[in-house]
Structure formats: structure tokens, C-alpha cells
Design a protein around this nucleic acid. Structure first.
Lengths: 229, 229
DNA sequence: TAATAAAATTTGTGATCACATTTTTAGTTT
DNA sequence: AAACTAAAAATGTGATCACAAATTTTATTA
């Protein structure tokens, strides 16, 4: 593990506490899929890699265990959460229940500049699919969603959605790598149109469909073929 | 704070880690409303009250902050989460989205013995309302719900619902004390009937209605009157 | 050589310490 | 009595230590 991880995360900023920096860094590694499902991590390993004491790492790991992103084994070791079909179905339900609502609560705060950013990210997302660039796909897909959600004043749904993404992103990175970007072709036109027209109901429906269809594709590709994860 | 808190939580059991015991104990204090919204707590205070070192308390508090049950103030002090109307609305949406689905996933595992327990708790809940016993109301209302949910094999929705209950229970305890048990009259007949008939759709609908109506009452009683919390 | 046992190392956990920041208390001034 | 200031205490944070349990490595035996 060593210092390789340090190269993959942003440097700590002036007034950021060590604990918060470790948290954000671990989140990044989970969301990008650098941490893969089932991967074992250790407190001292992370502390050493990030060149900090184990204390902030311990508290951070507790947070991530609480958020379902990390799991404790029977022998109290720590590993990255794995996703089976039942868990996938639960995440599926939670996503389609919470994300559309979250997006509509973000709508009032999405101005023209933000919309332009969202459109820009969507174009990059499309390009990543065409070019078969898995890392880019994962990054821009997440950015597309969170450029919207982060405009919401939410203090309940947003953390819940965050924890869902922490839980399934390592798995999704593996999935997209396995099935290819092409099958994940994403149609965001109606999402973007609803945003530009300030249509909250339309946005909820568009995003519901978008999430539903993406998740169905994964479910079909990974679990219906009885492919081992 | 001192040792009063110790008297209000279960003793630690043999193979329970200190950290887990502290977590369960703090959860209990939140769920019963012993910890009230906005209440300040300190790591050393809890450690002293529970007669443990601050270490397990720190890790536990991180979990609870992550779960939204505790919050950090601007000056990095720790307090019990408060609920304003926006937050209440978010919790409302999350509850009606997740709890019915969770209940239906519990249904296959609810046998006659469990159903009998649920009916028993419902009767105690009714009695608490009639007798105006706020503590009992809070306890049996929670038990009613979780006797159902804990039969679910859920690993995603159940922790999410748990964290929702941790977030709003201190608030609800205050609410019920303020408005009285009578206004919280709860009709669980259709919930129980759906369970006894093994009717998953009916259970989802009954529970949705139950939660919806309870939350609407609170919203009306507390926020429409502009009563300060 | 393979299996087993013992030793060494790793790992998570709880305890303790020191430090920077925040809050409270005590003393002084108006 | 109210306001202000300084000192003391409290608080969260990061660092470090020691211990029990789990895992890995090494040595011994069949």
C-alpha cells in the first residue's frame, strides 16, 4: 500500500483537520473504485500510507463502517463492502426512492452556470463511453449526479445518498470494467431538459428512469448471468 | 451527567466490546429521548458516566455523527441533532420511502410467535396512549416498528431506517410530551392484518399510511403553529 | 516433503498523554 | 450591577503505548 495511495488523493488543505482529510481521501478511493469490494485494509496501513497517526484513521474508519462503505469481518478485520444481489436490490430501491427527491430539492439552486457545468460533464461522460475509458466514466457519472445533488440544502437525504454511493461505487467500478462502457450508455437529455425548464416533477421522473435503467442493466449483466463477483 | 446515565442503560455483556456497548447505550438514550435535541455532550463526560476511557466513546461518537444522530457545532463541540421543518420533511420522505419496503422484506420471517409479540406490543402501545404515559408510548411505538423490521435480512435499508430513528427520536419524545399521547392515536389494525394474511402489498400500504398520518400530525402540531422547538 | 506446532508479527482495541482551541470562572474596572 | 479582562478549566484532536486476539512465519516432527 505504502505511499502509492498518497499519490491518488488530494493534498491536505490548511484548515482541514487530519481526520476530515483522511475521510475525504478514503471516500475518494472508494468512489473511484481504487478500493475494490472485499479488499482488506488496516488502520496502521492507512495511517502509514497517509503519514498520519492511527487515531484519525480509526475515527474515520468508524464513520465509513457506519455508512456501510467498509465492513468488519468476523475476526474484526476491516474490508471494503461487497455487493450481492440482495444488497444490490436494496441499494436499487433506496436510490430510486431518494435521489429523484433529492434532485428536485436541488433544482431551485441550479443556475445557468451550474447547468452549463452539468451539460459539460454530461458531454465528457458521453465521450468516456465512446472512448471506452472506464475511469473517466466512473468519474463523470458520479460528477453528473452530484453536481445536481450538491445544490440541494438537504441534510438528511444527501448524506444517505452519499453513503449509498460509497457502498456501491467500488462494485460499480468493477462492473463497468467488466461489461464495458458501451452497455452503460446513459441518456441524460431529459434530465438536463427538466433542469433547464425548472420542471421539478419532470426532473424526478427523468432521474428515476435514468437510475432505474442503469441499475437494471447492471442487475441483468451481473446477477442474471450468475457471474461471480 | 455523572453515573445517572449508567442507571438508564443495560449492563455490558461478556463478549460485547466496550465500543459496541457504548454505542448501543448511546442509541438507547437517543431513542428513548433521554438525550434531547440540542443537548450538549462531551467525550469525557460520556466516558466518565460509563466508566470507560474516551477511546471507545470517540469512535462511537464518530459513528453517531455519521448517522446524523449527533452533530458537531461550529466550535467542534458535540450536541444532539435538532430537527427543523425542512429536516422533518426530509425524514418524512425517507421514512415513507424506505420503511414500507423494509417491512415487506421482513414479512416472510414473521411467524406466529412474532406476530403475537407484535400484537402484544400494539396493545401496550394503545394502553400507553390511554394512560397518557409518554415514555411508554415512545418505547412501544418504536418496538412495534422494529419488531417488524428486525425480521428483515436487510443490510442496507435497515441501517438507514435505524439512522433515521436515531435522528428524530429525541425530537419525537419532546413532541409527544408536548402534544400528549392522545393526539398520537395509532391505528395498527391494518398493519397487523396484513402481516397475519402474509400480504406484502397490503403491509406496505398500511405502514405507509400509518407513518404518513403520524408524521402529518406532528408536522401540523409542531410546525404549522410556529411553535418553537 | 507434508503436516504440525511454536514463535513472531500484525491487527484492532482500550488507555493515556499532550496540545490547541473554546468555554467558564474569578477578579477588576466602570 | 454590568462590562471587561485574565486565568483556569474543559474540550476535541492527534500521538503514543500496551494488551489480547488473529495471522503469518519459522522450526520441528512424521
Amino acid at each position: 500500500m505504502q505511499n502509492e495511495l498518497l499519490l491518488k488523493v488530494a493534498k491536505i488543505r490548511g484548515d482541514t483537520s487530519v481526520k476530515e482529510w483522511v475521510y475525504q481521501s478514503l471516500c475518494e478511493l472508494l468512489l473511484t473504485g481504487e478500493f475494490t469490494p472485499g479488499m482488506s485494509i488496516t488502520l496502521r496501513g492507512i495511517a502509514e500510507a497517509f503519514e498520519v497517526s492511527p487515531m484519525p484513521v480509526r475515527e474515520t474508519v468508524q464513520r465509513l463502517v457506519s455508512e456501510g462503505a467498509l465492513e468488519l469481518t468476523e475476526t474484526r478485520r476491516i474490508c471494503v463492502a461487497e455487493i450481492n444481489e440482495d444488497k444490490f436490490d436494496e441499494i436499487f430501491h433506496a436510490r430510486v426512492s431518494l435521489e429523484p427527491k433529492l434532485a428536485s430539492s436541488a433544482l431551485p439552486s441550479i443556475d445557468d452556470k451550474a447547468l452549463k457545468q452539468i451539460i459539460d460533464v454530461d458531454e465528457r461522460l458521453m465521450r468516456s463511453i465512446v472512448e471506452g475509458d472506464v475511469e473517466e466514466y466512473v468519474r463523470y457519472n458520479r460528477q453528473f449526479h452530484f453536481l445536481i445533488y450538491h445544490h440541494s440544502p438537504s441534510v438528511v437525504l444527501l448524506p444517505m445518498v452519499n453513503s449509498l454511493w460509497l457502498q456501491f461505487s467500488p462494485f460499480m467500478r468493477v462492473v463497468v470494467g467488466r461489461v464495458g462502457t458501451q452497455v452503460m450508455m446513459d441518456h441524460h437529455e431529459s434530465v438536463i431538459e427538466s433542469i433547464s425548464e425548472n420542471d421539478a416533477q419532470g426532473l424526478q421522473k427523468a432521474l428515476y428512469n435514468n437510475i432505474f435503467n442503469r441499475m437494471i442493466i447492471v442487475k441483468d449483466e451481473i446477477f442474471s448471468h450468475d457471474t461471480p463477483t
